[in-house]
Amino acid sequence: MTKTHVTTTINGDTVEYLCDPQETLLDVLRDRLGMTGSKEGCGTGDCGACTVTVDGEIVCSCLMLGAEAEGRTIGTIEGMAEGEMLHPLQRKFLDHAALQCGICTPGILVAARTLLERNPEPSETEVRYWLAGNLCRCTGYDKIVRAVMDAAEEMRGRNHAA
């Protein structure tokens, strides 16, 4: 099988890989690059556990071919913290116990970060609709929504101070 050569940027680093044409970006991340933080919950774009950013937009990496990543800028959960410094969303998820099993958490964090970049002061309804594509079966979403709202508030305060 002829493989496709791809050069792309993941979490700020230039990455090259060969992939089968029908492999998804999620397959490439997990199986070829060892980045298993993005999860496969459904493979059909219905659960959001594989959410990554592509050129700043959130996508389900299971709904994108690895070959399509050529020249794009990809962001995954592995790039969310800066060294030991957790992103405010990551901290707030821990403080609020907004995860139980944790399988949906990476996808939700990536999606929520993009929301707060676009909309620093989302309403509860806006958070709920933005995250409607991220299934969580453990928490009933309550603590997730609270954690996102609380992170937004903290980030607004920090930006204001700066």
Partner: peptide
Amino acid sequence: GIDKVTGRARFGA
């Protein structure tokens, strides 16, 4: 917790 918010936690797959 930290493993689970950073993608380090290793699940079945």
